[in-house]
Design a protein around this nucleic acid. Structure first.
Length: 429
RNA sequence: GUGGCCGUAGCUCACCAGGUAGAGCACCGGAUUGUGACUCCGGAGGUAGCGGGUUCAAGACCCGUCGGCCACCCCA
């Protein structure tokens, strides 16, 4: 048995939970369609090179979290750790970036991290990418769209929008230099992790959860002070548009993102209901990525939402999943003759009433045990066939969900010809 | 990758100075012959995650391993 377990961090999802997923997925796809986005599907596996070049060589994802392997040709492939790279690659390859594109996709991503609540090794994202528009109205649309989604899901009160602009490459370079210079004067006050990052990725020190480090950062060179004119103008335009759309936000000058390809606008929707894994949706602008991956210079903005985290949130305090009964009708039959008649009649019913969920009892058993199954199925009515019904060419129809008050059985025996009408009547109250 | 807590029937848990496992729920069957939900009766189901060690004896103690949770790291 020990060998036959699922891979660590890769979970099975059963019907009861899948209800929430389906609810979430359909809400998302309807919303995106309403905003004019088209769904794209591309492979889960790509050349490792694609991720190295887009995400960044020195990021944790590339350095230690990718599921990479050699295929039989000797090519080194990787299970996608995120979706943007593959989406960009696909868009370039298809040659559709000569005009603006609004795209989205959904599916599993893979990162070899330590599993935790809201963090799996196979997890699922919905990603949304907009290509070919450099102006901040595009950024605004994406954010506004997510805000609407939270309302539709009933979790708007549980999430907060944080935004920032990290400017262009020069901005970050100049800020980074100043930051490093400042921090090096205070190395002794830095925590161990931050000291390490001073060499590898100084910007990420801004993210530190260490209170001492955060206090130190209060007097550090702040990124917004280094912003180039265009980034600053675009950012204030974005803030203005968000205001017009009624989307409130928090400016977080220390918000940086982990992937190398971001520039200008970055944003995160966070919640405090999920413990340490509070980011539910995050993204930003990546104007250089398309060119970096071999396409013509094309601006882009996008974001990804973590489905597992959203499911947790929605299940806890959002819309309840549609109440789920496995059946409308449960078919009970005892005896070979009855079984045959039941199957024949029910298949006829499925032709006439295709929308009904009709569960046929299988596996035999007494009337009593079949009735128990009928009850547990959640069905509103049971159709019953036994020798009596066969002999008289009838069916017994029994309501299962009448209020408990009247002890009356309320079942009736009908000619087969009247079944359809009686069933429709019983199921439409 | 690091640290802390945890791992007993399908589920939630208990017992026990270390002496070869129990409850509730769920499941199955029955309470006169073809009928559910309530009640009553009965039944099945566990190599106590796995492996090793200490001991006359371990689910209970020790080590390892796998898995879960929480935090760090990182990120959706």
């Amino acid at each position: 048995m020990s060998n036959l377990r699922s891979i660590r961090g890769m979970n099975d999802i059963f019907p009861e939970e899948v209800r929430y997923w389906q609810r979430l997925e359909s809400t998302v796809s309807d919303l995106l369609a309403n905003y004019g986005y088209g769904e794209v599907r591309f492979p889960i596996v790509e050349h490792t090179e694609l991720f190295r070049r887009s995400i960044g060589e020195v990021t944790d994802i590339v350095e230690k979290e990718m599921y990479s392997f050699d295929d039989r040709n000797g090519d080194n492939l990787t299970l996608r750790p995120e979706g943007t790279a593959g989406c960009v690659r696909a868009a370039i390859q298809k040659g559709i970036l000569n005009t603006p594109q609004r795209l989205w996709y959904a599916g599993p991503m893979f990162r070899h991290e330590r599993p935790q609540k809201g963090r799996q090794r196979q997890f699922h994202q919905v990603g949304v990418e907009a290509f070919g528009v450099a102006t901040p109205d595009m950024d605004a649309e994406l954010i506004v769209l997510t805000a609407r989604l939270w309302h539709q899901l009933g979790i708007a009160d549980a999430v907060e929008l944080q935004i920032n602009s990290i400017g262009n490459a020069q901005t970050r370079k100049r800020h980074c230099t100043a930051l490093v210079e400042y921090l090096e004067r205070h190395v002794d006050e830095l925590d161990e992790d931050s000291r390490r990052r001073l060499q590898s990725n100084p910007l990420r020190i801004l993210d530190s959860k260490n209170p001492v480090t955060q206090a130190l950062l209060d007097n550090a060179p702040a990124l917004p002070d280094f912003l180039d004119d265009e980034s600053a103008a675009d950012f204030s335009k974005l803030c203005e548009l968000l205001g017009r759309a009624g989307v409130s936000f928090v400016l977080n000058p220390r918000l940086v993102r982990g992937l190398d390809y971001y520039n200008k606008t970055v944003f995160e929707w966070v919640t405090n209901k999920l413990g340490a894994q509070g980011t539910v949706c995050a993204g930003g602008r990546y104007d250089g990525l398309v060119e970096q991956l071999g396409g013509k210079s094309t601006p882009g903005v996008g974001f990804a939402m973590g489905m597992e985290r959203l499911v947790l949130l929605v299940a806890e305090l959002g819309l309840s999943a549609t109440t789920f009964a496995r059946a409308d009708v449960y078919v009970v039959s005892v005896g070979d003759r009855a079984q045959g008649l039941a199957l024949e009649t029910v298949e006829g019913l499925r032709d006439i009433l295709p929308g009904y969920r009709i569960v046929q009892h299988v596996g035999g058993g007494s009337f009593k045990s079949q009735m128990k199954k009928a009850d547990k199925s959640g069905a509103k009515v049971a159709l019953i066939w036994g020798d009596d019904e066969v002999d008289s060419a009838t069916v017994t129809i029994k309501p299962l969900r009448r209020d408990v008050d009247t002890g009356q059985i309320g079942q009736q025996n009908l000619p087969l010809a009247e079944l359809e009408a009686a069933l429709v009547d019983a199921l439409t109250e």
